[in-house]
């Protein structure tokens, strides 16, 4: 097996598919997960707007979704892809189960970022008469930004590695190449090339996250 033009094209398509599956799923996961993370922190006992029953129910639902193995979730959620996207095979169909798996994960990641924030800063904002919304927009989010960016690198790399399982359900991407060629057809060379490309993608995402976080953090000078 050599790296001829056809193989290289296939790998290029694989990189693109991995990229857009990850990017779209991450986007949707954050659209759902970020507000959930905010609710988890804000409605907690001793939070800025305690609603303990809501916090508890949300916590249980998130744990439930997170405890389902992704491969199982993938198969369970595919009928939903059929409804939403119109197909249950191919890379676009994977975005739905990926989002379902990643959103609760993202909720927990952003929750832990918010919890790192010094309670005194929130108390100071309250002492100035800030409302719950003002505290969320003007204190919680901007003050947690460096930590949120680090968390995003963690979440996106995790979503990328989940996306590699798309190959099992007819999706594309580098993971699918590694499985289809390397595992099913016994071509270890192509498998290793795909894996190395995935590793490089993870490195790039992580490094970008680290740098963005560091650059945005005004605590380090």
């Amino acid at each position: 097996m050599k790296l001829d033009a056809v193989t290289i094209n296939m790998l290029k398509t694989g990189i693109w598919e991995s990229f857009y599956m990850t990017a779209l799923s991450s986007l949707f996961a954050y659209i759902i997960g970020l507000p959930l993370g905010i609710i988890l922190v804000v409605t907690d006992n001793g939070g800025i707007h305690p609603i303990p029953w809501l916090q508890k129910i949300l916590g249980v639902v998130i744990n439930l979704l997170r405890s389902v193995p992704f491969l199982i979730l993938l198969f369970i959620a595919l009928p939903l892809s059929k409804i939403v996207i119109g197909t249950r095979i191919g890379s676009p169909a994977i975005v739905i189960p990926l989002t379902i798996a990643a959103a609760p994960y993202v909720a927990r990641v952003v929750e832990s970022s918010f919890r790192e924030l010094d309670a005194g800063v929130i108390e100071a904002a309250q002492s100035m008469g800030a409302s719950t919304w003002q505290i969320i927009w003007k204190v919680l989010l901007p003050e947690s930004k460096p930590s949120l960016l680090l968390g995003a690198a963690l979440a996106v790399t995790t979503i990328l590695s989940y996306s590699a399982m798309a190959g099992f359900t007819g999706g594309g991407g580098l993971g699918a190449i590694a499985i289809n060629y390397g595992y099913y057809r016994y071509e270890p060379f192509l498998m290793w090339v795909s894996v190395v490309l995935l590793v490089v993608m993870v490195q790039i995402i992580q490094e970008a996250g680290n740098r963005l976080s560091r650059r945005s953090d005004k605590r380090i000078r």
């Binding site: 005194g120 800063v121 309250q126 002492s127 100035m128 008469g129 409302s131 204190v139 953090d217």
Partner: peptide, 20 residues
């Protein structure tokens, strides 16, 4: 909240917004 604007408060740990 309105009344609190008539009562400033300072703290032992200053509690400044680190990103501002």
């Amino acid at each position: 909240r309105m009344i609190r604007r008539s009562m400033g408060m300072i703290f032992q740990q200053f509690n400044l917004l680190a990103q501002r």
